[in-house]
Nucleic acid binder design. Structure first.
Lengths: 188, 188
DNA sequence: GTCTATACACCGATAGAC
DNA sequence: GTCTATCGGTGTATAGAC
């Protein structure tokens, strides 16, 4: 159960963390921008670190939810992968702050606050998808962890690019199509 | 001119920033680990931000220096690109902290402390290399900025992977060879 | 250039009334 | 659950002796 005030706190924290960094934004400012008292913030989150981790988990959860929207076992592997690819890029384009926050968090010492099991729990399904593609000889016979980081960073790069040129919808769709082909060509 | 004490300050700052983040490491701790007094740090760098930016520029400079080591106009475009690719990955593997620091800096609000002209000054030579490859019809006819982010993020991903599996020298060389082929296949 | 000592603002977190 | 008030601790930066 997430109350209204709690939502406001997370919303303000996201905006401010992206703007000024984790340590660069005092809890007092988060509370002020969220329209709540300082003490209220610490009622919901015992420490500032806990707030940061909660925000990260919340955003990661929303992305994961969206990611597999529309995939179906009747479709081919390539079609499903493309749906996941497009879902991720579209989500990133529609949630720039969230995506930037995740990147910031991932390349910060705060990442160590997430338990390794939690990370591998989130990663495992993706590795399994790649494994099946290798088994079916769709993908090259490379370590799946290697393909995973390449795929991930390809998506990061595309998000950056899309963010920078801010294309129209049609152009964005074309870009996603084209870059997926590049990726596909690389891995098959 | 960079004095000994100044070097020690930069060295300690790098280690601590990687460990605890920018705001997570007080200047007092940097001074202590560097074996200098607190005031000495502020003698060399007027503010903490100035120290962070100086460290970033210093590291970026060293990477850029190394990057083009061994390239020659007599070699083919592909050979030269591969040299740059391998130089970058080897440098990253030999300077894990430096590389991590750069990534951390790039995905932080501190990046805005670098003037846009400074950034484009560093990026321009690379874009020109890509442009010439497009002109010679070696690479696909895609926006060079797109290829640049893909190339960059490919390298980031590979660095992560190499860091994680910590391969022997022979295996690392093989990995660099193979992944370069993947990249080449994608862009041509 | 390097040190010691310190100003003083600010931050995370708590206590306790409502 | 939400607020106000506040404490203890810490951080950046400066002043001034050597």
């Amino acid at each position: 159960m997430v109350s209204d005030k709690q939502q406001e706190i997370l919303k303000a924290a996201l905006r401010l963390f992206v703007e000024s960094g984790f340590h660069g934004t005092p809890t007092s400012r988060i509370a002020k921008e969220a329209g709540v008292a300082n003490g209220t913030l610490f009622h919901y989150y015992k420490t500032k670190d806990e707030l940061i981790v909660a925000l990260y988990s919340s955003i990661k959860g929303k992305l994961n939810e969206r990611m597999h929207n529309g995939t179906q076992s009747e479709l081919s592997f390539k079609e499903n992968l493309k749906i996941i690819y497009a879902n991720t890029l579209n989500w990133a384009a529609e949630h720039k702050e969230e995506f930037y926050f995740v990147q910031q968090f991932n390349t910060s010492p705060f990442l160590s606050l997430i338990a390794p099991e939690e990370i591998s729990r989130q990663t495992k399904p993706h590795l399994e998808i790649l494994e099946s593609a290798v088994r079916q000889k769709i993908f090259k016979n490379l370590p799946v962890e290697l393909m995973f980081v390449l795929l991930n960073n390809h998506i990061y790069g595309m998000s950056q690019y899309i963010h920078n040129i801010a294309p129209e919808d049609a152009q964005k769709k074309q870009l996603i199509d084209d870059s997926f082909d590049l990726l596909w060509r690389m891995l098959t």
